[in-house]
Design a protein around this nucleic acid. Structure first.
Lengths: 340, 340
DNA sequence: CTGAAAGCGCTTACAG
DNA sequence: CTGAAAGCGCTTACAG
């Protein structure tokens, strides 16, 4: 409950000096700085962020907007962002936009704009031009994770290349009949991620002189259950069962592995499976995958935000930063069986 | 950027009236209220929460502290809390305390106490007396989810009863040799949840005249991988392989199902498996479980907080509220085989 | 029902 | 290096 006033009295200085001593802005002699620190400590003083924000115009709080919360990928990105923010002395205020239209409008109008946050990180969310200009107008930096956003700094993975790499891994193992489990219409909204992955898959095939077979494509919803159903369809095709499957997410790939087992097919002997993500379960299932490090994505987003917020350290970078990815080979992929 | 001043000018009233008209505190004639609303709308005015908080002492922001973020259970609780908070006009600021000691101290000292939040929700976290009094001293309501916390309102599930119910389900199906996969030392910290579940398991057994066999207990870490390893151990015991397994979490139960499959045992023909949670994957695996509705837990926590924050609606309740749970029977449990 | 004015607790030019 | 004072943008007794 102690205010700056009391600290000032105890230390025998003005409140202005207390403020300068504690914040480090402006010069204060070493001895008074110490006296102030001691007084603050003794009184258990901690600055009122509201008063401070009102005076400075900065809140030390950033808003994070996401479409889902209880999915491994999203919560991992947030985890990375949260710890990086904390380390920089910032709070993270969370806005889950999964609810849909109304909730989304209300978040933008009543919360984000209410001068509560200094900046926003948008994860896998394609902000509308109105939303973007709303934020930009009041001078809030934005960084987007997951896809290009007009006029703001973004971080994204090259989905086409990632998918190509996954497919090439299978090709290099001698597979020529490769199925693909991609997104369905609903999962397409955000940045066309499923389409990009399918494009990469087809490009790799074509580069290898194989023309993609539409019958070897199955749409699903990025869940294990969806991947299971799609995997069954793919592996149950008469006459041309693929010897390998590339799923656009690890959860779908795990579903495919389980589908294969239930069909009596051995992985990787009868069918190789590769995913994308390096999901927390992937190691357990021995899934070969392309890792995409979501926690790192969260940390990087914060890093870029800090550059915008503290232009002193600004290193004018490009608008879109490519995120790293890496092939991790486990036991779900192997050479195509010589016989068969 | 428009402030209350400009709205007042446009509407031809004082800022005091604007404040009253927009907030609903104090009487304002219908006609001026409308004029003010129109002016605010036209200018895109939105109140500065810092200025407002400074004047009122309330932030409309609640801090949520959790030990993990990217686990289904925790992120589901948060999801429930977030939407309930939003509906009440509150923001949710997230503090992930997974990092350990230093981070935890820093969160309490520098963030929560900084007058940034009106209240805190502590999920599955046993706050220390110092942390509790720190918050209580500055008059911040707290609600705890997951276990009793000295002197604050809490929500918790009766782990002993839940475990007993799960075990009774197996007993009622004729099983007499029932293994248990519980927590290991590390998972014991918070509210002794694993111990309570084990106690319930043993109580059910004893009530049925069966004395618990320590060899039919295996500790694990609440993950699928850990449950898999523990399940293998349990189902590989020579001579006295249990005909049923009760795992203290669904993830461990799923691990057990996978372990059984790999051992060539059929679920539920050869072994029945039950868990606790109703995890998002449980339905897919046909897992019988005791559901515990984490999103509801988050919503309820907010409900209780609102009662404390707005004492007008306060209905002085008990200090600890029991959370609901429910047996959900799927295909992983069945009668013990007559023969064998 | 409405306005003038004080106050919330800081920060930061401006002087010295 | 330090202090007096204005100001950040609201809210709310206090009058009327």
């Amino acid at each position: 409950m102690a205010g700056i006033q009391e600290v000032a009295e105890l230390a025998g200085v003005s409140t202005a000096t207390v403020s300068r001593a504690l914040s480090g802005n402006g010069h204060v002699s070493l001895s008074t700085r110490e006296r102030v620190a001691k007084a603050a400590e003794a009184l258990g003083y901690v600055v009122s962020s509201n008063a401070s924000s009102l005076a400075t115009g900065r809140t030390r709080n950033v808003g994070v907007v996401i479409p889902f919360l209880n999915k491994w990928f999203y919560s991992s990105v947030i985890e990375g962002a949260e710890s990086a923010l904390l380390a920089n002395g910032y709070d993270l205020t969370l806005y889950n936009l999964g609810g849909g239209g109304d909730e989304r409008r209300s978040v933008f109008e009543h919360f984000l704009l209410r001068k509560r946050v200094d900046a926003v990180i948008a994860i896998s969310l394609e902000l509308t031009p109105a939303e973007l200009t709303g934020l930009l107008n009041i001078n809030k930096p934005i960084v987007g994770v997951g896809g290009p956003l007009a006029g703001v700094r973004t971080l994204s993975i090259d989905d086409v290349s990632v998918a190509r790499l996954a497919t090439e891994h299978l090709l290099s193992l001698g597979h020529t009949s490769i199925g693909h489990i991609g997104g369905n219409e609903q999962s397409e909204r955000d940045f066309h991620l499923p389409t990009n992955r399918r494009v990469g898959y087809e490009a790799a095939l074509q580069a290898a002189g194989i023309s993609p077979d539409p019958e070897l494509f199955q749409p699903a919803d990025f869940t294990i259950r969806g991947g299971y159903a799609a995997g069954k369809q793919l592996l149950g095709i008469p006459r041309k069962r693929p010897s390998a499957v590339f799923a656009a997410s690890d959860e779908m790939a795990i579903g495919t592995i389980l589908a294969a087992r239930d069909l009596g097919l051995r992985v990787p002997d009868d069918v190789s499976v590769i995913g994308i993500d390096d999901h927390e379960l992937s190691d357990f299932f021995g899934l070969t995958t392309i890792a995409q490090f979501p926690q790192l994505q969260g940390r990087k987003a914060v890093e870029i935000l800090m550059e915008q917020l503290h232009p002193s350290r600004r290193t004018q970078g490009t608008l879109n930063t490519a995120l790293p990815y890496e092939l991790i080979v486990r036991s779900s992929t192997a050479m195509r069986a010589r016989t068969s």
